[in-house]
Design a protein around this nucleic acid. Structure first.
Lengths: 365, 365
DNA sequence: TCAAAATCCGCAAACGGTTGCATTCATATG
DNA sequence: CATATGAATGCAACCGTTTGCGGATTTTGA
């Protein structure tokens, strides 16, 4: 009886596995059975890389069977066996920063074109969250990383690179030059901005800098000094005020602090658009008009700065391209593990709008 | 000789596999060996849900071993076996729409808190891309879907719901009421907008509507008519111009079309902020001043509409909360497969800024 | 003190593909 | 004609966890 029950149970589960197959989502085994081939052959027939190992007629039969059954390959099973997840981790400070979505879109577009998918995480520039995120992404076995949050030295990130996992940095780089990166031409952008202001007759130009521990902050400040120097304009440390964060409030505060000691300034080169927004706020608070009293130029050309009044003159970086390029570089590195590490520098373009105008040197207060 | 070589090779790989074990990323088997327990026990000790099946002392020993080895659980293997990926698919029209990032942030925040991760896809409202995305996400075996792109009838999406996969819609719903959704109180928002305009003395108020095939477009238009009716103000079809897309260009065109036949309008209720931006453009083109000649109110309060000149009066929807709520509802449904389907309606708030002012009925042209 | 119950843990079978190797069969070669 | 060559497919191990089942050990209860 026990035996008999067992036999019955077997038969039932058997019948479930056959007639009931329509219920379950079909597996490769179902497809192979339907196409009358071995499961291994079915696998090869369905996989682009191994398609040529099987007769074209057989391949067609398998694909037909797969279609007939509505087969959807189980990517998890595939990832598990092949140790490739076709997914990449993206580490951002905060998705809500309008500068980032176009970059993400660029990343997504090239990833999906290659059958990859991205896992996005926000860190709010918090070290603990960064660590947790990296652990999560590692646990999910992402094939590579795109990182938008690095400081000039950053142990967590350097650790990823050292572990041999493909990685590419965007916007910001580390001081180490053995990690691939996609950045914009900070030096050229700042130079163009200064040139523009000089052409408008400005000579008392100051720089509201970003954090020195970020490559963008350091590079743009350095470029500012060089550009001033090229124009034989004096530039001292007093002409540069640094923010320890790329924020509107910080930009406002830094501007006010600088204006407290300098009353003849007629133009501001801000390290990025948010700092520029803060500078504009500061000018308003100081009862100064932009651009009549003081000209301002930003950096990034993030969405909507063209709709403000006055619209912001700024250095446009091609955000979408940064993302797309980063994904390309990363996928290249994944496909070809000894691809050289490279830093891609994308061109920028000064967009002249309403916050800059000819200099009418203002009176000292 | 062959044999000897083979033996040597074996020994080498053996030594790699033992002493070199530190090289490989450790597996559960390594942890179990280190802790001197069976692999099954190690699994239970490390898993919150099964922790109580093992003695506390044993659990501690296992966790210590895991820590010592730097063990990172292979989520892929876990997903494979348990048929749960702890990932959910998010379908968006376009991440680049500034309305969406705060929603996404809300989704991400609650998902990560529960150990989940999201796979985001952009469809650009293209049916083919939608289908491809759904296939991709199904292949990756996401545990559920959050969908921001549905039309009032939408076969692809209804198909997901019918398949039994947990799903929740955001912003927009289908006409079917058996699918969970998180939306904002469209009717209240429009009512508040109309009330505000009436209080300012306006009576010639028109509505630039969204697409009728979207629930938001239909609901807001319907609410507009009701609100006008409540104030005993006449409202005909001529007072409503529809856009077939929530875009700036469409809003501009629809406004111009309506103003071509109506010269006494003093206020516009736009179906969303982008349409409102288009309406403002149209007014500029028509040499009309906002808010002096015509008041405008938008919907959504997306980022940066407060920085424009004049800043936009609009109905604020709590975007972050929409995303967070959607994630909560979805996770609840995943954890509890017979949770009731529910539609969560979040409150909205009229934010009065610079595009609305008291009516000074303008002359007919 | 001993049976029953409860607790803890080991055992081994999945999960669904991929892939190196073996086998078969047809074709080319000497 | 026998054999070498190569193409096409079958075979089966393997990837790292989870989990139902049952055995061993301890605790409980009368």
């Amino acid at each position: 009886m026990n035996n008999r029950n067992g036999a019955e149970a077997n038969q039932v589960s058997q019948s479930v596995a056959t007639t009931g197959a329509a219920r379950r989502t079909p597996t490769l085994a179902d497809v192979a059975a339907e196409a009358q081939v071995h499961i291994g052959t079915a696998s090869r027939a369905l996989n682009d890389a191994t398609r040529n190992m099987v007769k074209v007629e057989t391949a067609r039969r398998v694909r037909d069977a797969a279609f007939r059954l509505g087969y959807s390959p189980n990517v998890i099973a595939s990832s598990f066996r092949s140790q490739k997840t076709s997914s990449i981790g993206v580490m951002l400070p905060d998705l809500t920063n309008p500068f980032l979505p176009p970059i993400l879109r660029g990343i997504e577009d090239v990833l999906t074109k290659h059958g990859y998918v991205s896992l996005i995480g926000n860190t709010d520039n918090d070290a603990a969250m960064e660590l947790k995120l990296v652990e999560t992404l590692r646990a999910r076995r992402v094939d590579g990383f795109i990182i938008a949050t690095t400081k000039r030295t950053h142990p967590i990130i350097e650790n990823i690179a050292d572990s041999g996992t493909p990685i590419v940095l965007i916007n910001r780089t580390t001081d180490r030059n053995d990690i691939s990166a996609v950045i914009s031409d900070n030096a050229a952008g700042i130079r163009d901005a200064v040139n523009h202001l000089v052409q408008l007759g400005h000579s008392r130009i100051v720089h509201i800098a970003g954090p020195n521990f970020l490559s963008t902050g350091r590079d743009r400040a350095r470029a500012f000094k060089e550009a001033m120097h090229d124009h034989k304009l004096p530039v001292s440390e007093a002409d540069i005020s640094s923010c320890d964060h790329y924020g509107i409030a910080e930009g406002c505060a830094a501007t006010k602090q600088l204006f407290a000691t300098r009353s003849d300034v007629t133009a501001i080169v801000a390290a990025n658009d948010r700092i520029a927004l803060g500078a504009l706020q500061a000018l308003r608070d100081l009862q100064l008009s932009c651009p009549d009293d003081v000209s301002v130029v930003g950096f990034n050309d993030m969405p909507f700065v063209d709709l403000m009044t006055p619209p912001l003159t700024t250095v446009r970086v091609n955000q979408y391209a940064v993302g797309a390029q980063a994904a390309e570089v990363l996928l290249d590195r994944i496909a070809n593990s000894n691809a050289i590490t490279k830093t891609v520098v994308l061109p920028v373009k000064l967009i002249i709008r309403g916050t800059t105008s000819p200099c009418r040197s203002r009176q000292s207060t």
